[in-house]
């Protein structure tokens, strides 16, 4: 019997909107690699895909939502986290994942990131960090390290950059990890762990941007970057996040840095209301749709 006929399908396939593939990402870009890891984590965690929503902002990573066969939202630039907050609070049965880039989440969306972490809203945030604004042509971002050339720092960057795990921990995230697109098994495992956590969880994934970061800095292509991840990464689970900043050519500390328990937003909210209001407190009931007989009005289904 031919193995071609009975071989298993690529595990990622069942999660893709296959009519939208091939995707728009460049050769050697790592975003697709993170998607593989994400789907393996979904399989391992036996996630109910009908109750899983993915929210992206704007940018290259912002396009992830459009390729995954889930309830998916491609929102405005920087606002994936507050959108996800509303989605989660209105329907706590949903598992809500924010999947976006470093510029989207930490420059224009930085304020929302720290506040959602502070509130400990139960959302999972995956940041694909390619160290640059890629979709718009390679401008400096909040994670761009010093001494690299970008479209807006043609003479070299000089602004200090964010150390994302430290920022996430300081703001209150209950789970903080960093991997690169070289660490596919570890990343998939980390995403699995993230799904087991209740509360604001954060994974940073370093990813090549051969077109707009590596090329300008004569760092080679995507494969060269993957090799450099392999060489320069050092796994240090539990490392103090203050010790893991990224530099242009230095060591990349990867691992799980934070895994702690804090009551999430809705838990705190309900506890407070129950303490203050006792039996008067009503659990949120959001249903806005029709519970009654449906009829046709103007061709649409509006309820009477």
């Amino acid at each position: 019997m031919s193995t071609e006929l009975i071989h298993p399908e690529n595990p990622v396939e069942q999660f893709l909107r296959s009519d939208r593939i091939p995707h728009i990402w460049c050769p050697g870009c790592g975003i697709g690699t993170t998607v593989n890891c994400f789907t393996r984590a979904l399989i391992d965690s036996k996630a109910n895909l009908d109750k899983l929503a993915i929210v992206s902002g704007i940018g290259c990573t912002g396009r992830v939502a459009g390729y995954l066969d889930l309830d998916s939202f491609h929102t405005t630039h920087g606002r994936a986290i507050p959108f996800a907050t509303g989605l989660k609070l209105a329907n706590p049965d949903l598992s809500v994942v924010v999947y976006s880039g470093d510029g989207d989440l930490f420059a224009i969306g930085g304020n929302h990131f720290i506040h959602a972490a502070r509130r400990n809203v139960d959302i999972k945030v995956v940041c694909v960090n390619n160290l640059v604004y890629a979709m718009t042509g390679g401008q400096t971002g909040p994670t761009t390290p010093g001494s690299v050339v970008t479209a807006t720092n043609p003479y070299g960057t000089f602004e200090p950059s964010f150390n994302l795990p430290q920022l996430a921990e300081a703001a209150g995230a209950v789970y903080v990890a960093r991997w690169t697109t070289f660490h596919v098994r570890q990343l998939a495992r980390s995403m699995y762990e993230m799904f087991q956590k209740k509360g604001f969880s954060f994974i940073e994934v370093l990813s090549p941007c051969p077109t707009l970061y590596q090329r300008r800095n004569k760092m080679g292509d995507g494969l060269d970057t993957m090799k450099s991840y392999k060489e320069k990464s050092k796994k240090r689970d539990g490392a103090p996040t203050s010790e893991v900043p990224l530099t242009r050519d230095g060591e990349i500390v990867v691992g799980k840095f934070v895994d702690r328990e804090r009551p999430d937003y809705l838990t705190l909210m309900k506890a407070q209301f129950q303490a203050s209001l006792g039996e008067r407190y009503q659990e949120p009931e959001m249903h806005s749709g029709c519970e009654f007989e449906q009829s046709e009005i103007d061709g649409g289904t509006i309820c009477q």
Partner: peptide
């Protein structure tokens, strides 16, 4: 081992272990 499938950013390759029966 399907590491190729894990790495492939374009969902263009994957591997699987042969079952003995086939």
């Amino acid at each position: 081992c399907d590491l190729c499938g894990m790495f492939c950013p374009d969902f263009a390759i994957h591997g699987w272990r042969e079952k003995k029966a086939s």
